[in-house]
Design a binder for these strands. Structure first.
Lengths: 195, 195
DNA sequence: ATCATTTCTTAACATATGTGAACGAAATCC
DNA sequence: GGATTTCGTTCACATATGTTAAGAAATGAT
């Protein structure tokens, strides 16, 4: 259960971490399990944890005034997910995080997050780099969302996240790409013709 | 010259900072001036600084294979801007940052960034929160980009950044919103009719 | 297995945004 | 201050995506 997290830390920091320090970090995390469709964070409620996905998958979404769900992020094994604004500000969440499959996660609450940052040398830096990487990726995603048409965005998404294509319902991928399910269906059909 | 930065730090950290520590931080920054159209970062070149805008404005953009510029961020007095990926990884930048008006900035290079993080207690946290806030805002922006039509996006942008509307050419705002200048012109015309 | 629910596909039509071109206004350059 | 370029607007037409609706396919429950 711990090895995926260790790999993740190593990848983000680009170096190995001390075994004992890693154990202290692990000790601050709670193992939790959720059924499919369970909510890990809920809109309107303060989000108490940031989650590392050990097994399974989830996604976060915003609910529009008209009830539409707008998908913001997907997360599978090895990814982190939360409503960061809510977690850090302790204000009500604006996103929901929902399990797509049964999930096992390591959950870190804010008190333990603070303790980890204060007592384990690389933790502060780890989260800074983690968020930094996410920010950089998001900036690129928005540039592409604005400049490319839907078929190119889908093609890039498939290439970048082939695992997601397998495991995530198309109507959620459509939302993530900013189009309707019918449009994604059309795009997929056309891409088969061309290929 | 220093008061804008002090305000910025206070706002991000949500508390005052020690005067002496602030001076040490300031001492690590270089004052620089750029003419309109000058490049603060250039695609293909490692971006050596992160910039705090003291006076003037800039924007960052991606250049598409067909030569189109895709605007990613605007920055005016009190904002930070850079190609963060390039700055931290020391790899070639994928964005350009260009002055929209003559600008005065405080520029922080990577060596000094490290020194500041290592020697001034709140600096590490300051940059983490800064990036965190930017990440949260971007996530919201992409959700809206995907779910709202161009007229609503423009309306929200005007409301959120009235100063930008005054100072930034429309064709750049159009790019930022993911539409063509002609479409923005049409949207503006229609919004006058309705109002 | 059967039925109910959810997800995906297809089609005809509606609408928003893109494209190309023209023009004038404004800004910039000598 | 006049020449030149850049920017904003408008229009007619092209195209991508949305909408509505129906049914097929897949999934889940009993």
């Amino acid at each position: 259960m711990t090895s995926a997290l260790k790999e993740n830390i190593k990848k983000v920091l680009q170096h190995q971490v001390d075994e004992k320090q890693f154990s202290s970090f692990m000790a601050l995390m709670e193992e939790k399990n959720f059924e499919k469709k369970a909510l890990l964070c809920e809109e309107g409620v303060v989000c108490k944890y940031i989650y590392f996905i050990d097994k399974g998958s989830c996604y976060s979404y915003l609910t529009e005034p008209d009830g539409e769900k707008q998908v913001v992020q997907f997360a599978i094994e090895g990814n982190w997910i939360s409503d960061l604004f809510s977690f850090f500000s302790e204000k009500k969440a604006i996103y929901c995080v929902e399990a797509l499959e049964p999930v096992n996660v390591l959950a870190l609450n804010k008190k333990n997050f603070q303790i980890a940052c204060d007592t384990i040398p690389w933790v502060d830096r780890f989260f800074r780099v983690l968020i930094q990487n996410a920010y950089v990726a998001l900036q690129y995603r928005i540039a592409k969302t604005n400049s490319e048409e839907a078929d190119a965005r889908y093609k890039e998404f498939s290439k970048l996240h082939p695992q997601f294509i397998q495991r995530i319902p198309q109507y959620l991928i459509a939302s993530y790409l900013g189009i309707k399910p019918q449009s994604l269906s059309r795009i997929r059909k056309e891409s088969i013709h061309k290929a």
